[in-house]
Amino acid sequence: MTVARQDFLVDLRAVRFAYGEREILRGIDLSVRRGQVVAIMGGSGCGKTTLLRLIGGQLRASAGQVVVDGADLAGLSRAALYGLRRRMGMLFQFGALFTDMSVFDNVAFPLREHTDLPPELVRALVLMKLNAVGLRGAEALSPAELSGGMARRVALARAIALDPMLIMYDEPFAGLDPISLGVIGQLIRRLNDALGASSIMVTHDIHESLEIVDYVYFVSDGRIVARGTPDEIRASDDPFVHQFVHAEADGPVPFHYPAPSLAASLLGEVGA
């Protein structure tokens, strides 16, 4: 696959990142071509949210390059970074809706902050976005009155309010029933194509995502351990991929956070 670098909207090269002493990412190479929907998968706590934060410029890589739309994030001023972020949308893992505003105001927030559109137009746009996630009737509710899945859908509507060029979804399917899950999955794909945007999706739902994405990365232990198109993934006999696709407890992806063995911990406790 030989593609010119400028075809990539997002391009991570040998990115490393550590929270304090603990290194989370140890050399990630990942790229998203314009117009693609890319899924990132990996065990819980392996650093997927961290990866999205790096792409959004909220965290700085300790080594390597993060390039978004041709700009190396490390060299950007705050103003330039904010300029770039206006063209990004992010769905946070826990929604992160503004609790002091109604659903309507939440979705209207980016529009009001960044545009001078007249109120009627803002209203029309917001209702369109809410309609897309099936919550037009909930515009007057406060975030406290929403279920987890509804909150995530509102957050999704907010993330796409400004028609961004890059949309990042942190676990868009968590807490959704199978029906909404299918609808949201299709929505993500359609939005991406309609807006001419590119999307990065962190998810655990391998079967749903294989239906809609163009490319999949598997992250484990701070590295990309497998990658490929959905067809390649389905046909893959890579142990990681196999473990994921078939949801096996035993395999290369560790279920436990790094620790001494349970027996050793318990004995140590008694001995102390």
Binding site: Q58, R86, M88, F98, F109, P110, E113
Partner: peptide
């Protein structure tokens, strides 16, 4: 309490991600 809870629920980070400075807003 209000600002702290906004931080806990990642509202400040979300705002920052939307290119709106939480300090200003």
């Amino acid at each position: 309490a209000e600002i702290g809870l906004m931080k806990v629920t990642e509202q400040l980070k979300a705002m920052d991600m939307m290119a709106v400075s939480p300090i200003a807003r």
